[in-house]
Design a protein around this nucleic acid. Structure first.
Length: 427
RNA sequence: GUGACUGUAGCUCAGCUGGUAGAGCCCCGGACUGUGACUCCGGUUGUCGUGGGUUCGAGCCCCAUCAGUCACCCCA
């Protein structure tokens, strides 16, 4: 029978990698906790409608990347392609948003049916942070400060660049879109099929066309900047000033347009050139219209999401995971000769009680000294405890040795009763 | 969704113009040593990604399919 394998683009995270993930997760937890953000958890499945109404009907994500299906009741459901929509739905459904401020975070798997490549997978993971009820730009800057802090803790700040842009309010973009549609209608005969369709559904996306003929037709098209409201301009100017005052470097990128429709005013991406084509590690911005769009009371909002796989790739290739985070075993207890069968387990238990923060493995399965000490080395432990006896079941006659592993061959004979205290000198 | 390249042992890979599948590492046992060494001896492992086709004969050629990698696109 043919072996079954994982679905394309969906990865197993094996023991060799999971330590890196844990390191990253603990770092993230530490930082959001220090900023006073609280965790929210929401389902992987939602009604398809939620994503259509938030992300936008004519975005790539909704048009061709969602895992959607009819469940047994005939409801059309989708696996979440991102976190913000579900977060907003959950927070609003439970009354967390009305007349309140919230600082929330989440983490978990997201699903998009794209062609996999480096840093892009069909099941991928995000850390997300969302803030509700604050006008900014102070909260926007706080979010960026939080991200910058995370890069510092991970020691990868020098490899990331913050790019920012102002895409104006929803009203600004609506006015601009109308103008752009009118302009495109005047050049109708020079547009390709794709552009002709989008000029009505989502005219701004025509600007991204790779077709040279379309690009030519865009000559002299109106520019978004001319439509951005004074209020939005001021918000953006303040944001830049605050970033400068806080020493958070950034680069303005007028072509930075996010692929999700709900963003407004300031949007940003942290990018790196260490990952190849998928250089965006973190992306976000304001989305003041989304809550109302989903049926809630108008609520100011901003947030970002981080791609965990991309961060893991960065940490690996830059070798930024501390060695101690990669060694789950500290002490390896082995028994040779005629040691009572339960002694190893008992000694390990005592060590665990005294040093609960350490990882302690008791060798199981027998074997000669050489094979056991070899397993001790291979476990990555820094110390081995060797129990050896010539006499059956006589614990008093057991020789106990603490042996430093790694490059050193330092060792010390100790009494069984002194082991847990003596070993402190080796830690 | 499009394109390019790639699929041979647990891992890394070799395998000539088509002629009965190999190496290293790892792992296990043993000798030696008696604190993972070295050396030596011995041992396990493959439907050559899958399914068709061409051929007397296919790991190698052809088609399809699945998967991986990278890029386009898009994004985290």
């Amino acid at each position: 029978m043919a072996k079954l394998q994982a679905i394309r683009g969906m990865n197993d995270i094996l023991p060799g990698q999971s330590l890196t993930w844990q390191y990253l997760e603990s770092c993230f937890h530490r930082v959001v906790q220090r900023y006073g953000y609280q965790e929210i958890r929401f389902p992987v499945l939602e009604q398809t409608q939620l994503f259509k109404r938030s992300i936008g009907e004519v975005t790539d994500i909704v048009e061709k990347e969602m895992y959607s299906f009819d469940d047994r009741n005939g409801d059309n459901l989708s696996m979440r392609p991102e976190g913000t929509a579900g977060c907003v739905r959950a927070a609003d459904q439970h009354g967390l948003l009305y007349n309140q401020q919230q600082r929330l975070w989440y983490a978990g798997p997201m699903f998009r049916h794209e062609r996999p490549q480096k840093g892009r997978y069909r099941q991928f993971h995000q850390f997300g942070v969302e803030a509700f009820g604050m006008a900014g730009p102070d909260i926007d800057v706080e979010l960026l400060q939080l991200a910058a802090q995370l890069w510092q803790e991970l020691d990868i700040a020098e490899f990331l660049t913050l790019e920012i842009n102002n895409i104006g309010s929803a009203a600004d973009r609506k006015a601009y879109g109308a103008e752009l549609t009118a302009f495109l209608e005047s050049r109708k005969e020079n547009l390709d099929e794709d552009a002709s369709k989008r000029m009505y559904s989502n005219p701004m996306r025509v600007l991204d066309s790779k077709n040279p003929q379309v690009q030519e037709a865009l000559e002299g098209a109106p520019e978004l900047a001319a439509f951005v409201s004074q209020e939005s301009i001021e918000h953006y100017a303040m944001l830049r000033a605050m970033l400068t005052e806080l020493g958070i470097a950034f680069r303005e990128n007028a072509r930075l347009v996010r692929g999700l429709d709900y963003y407004n005013n300031c949007v940003y991406e942290w990018t790196t050139d260490t990952l190849g084509a998928q250089g965006a590690v973190c992306g976000g911005g304001r989305y003041d219209g989304l809550v109302a769009q989903l049926g809630g009371k108008p609520t100011l909002a901003a947030g970002f999401a981080i791609g965990v796989e991309r961060l893991v790739l960065m940490l690996d290739s830059l070798e930024k995971v501390p060695a101690e985070a990669l060694h789950p075993v500290d002490i390896y207890v082995l028994s040779v000769g005629k040691v009572a069968p339960s002694l190893g387990l008992q000694v390990a238990a005592e060590l665990r009680q005294k040093y609960p923060q350490l990882g302690i493995v008791s060798h199981c399965g027998g074997g000669k000294y050489n094979s056991q000490i070899k397993k001790a080395f291979n476990s990555g432990a820094s110390l081995a405890v060797v129990l050896e006896a010539g006499q059956d079941g006589d614990n008093a006659a057991v020789d106990v040795k603490i042996r430093r592993l790694g490059d050193s061959d330092e060792s010390r004979d100790v009494a069984l009763t002194d082991l847990t205290t003596q070993i402190a000198e080796f830690l």
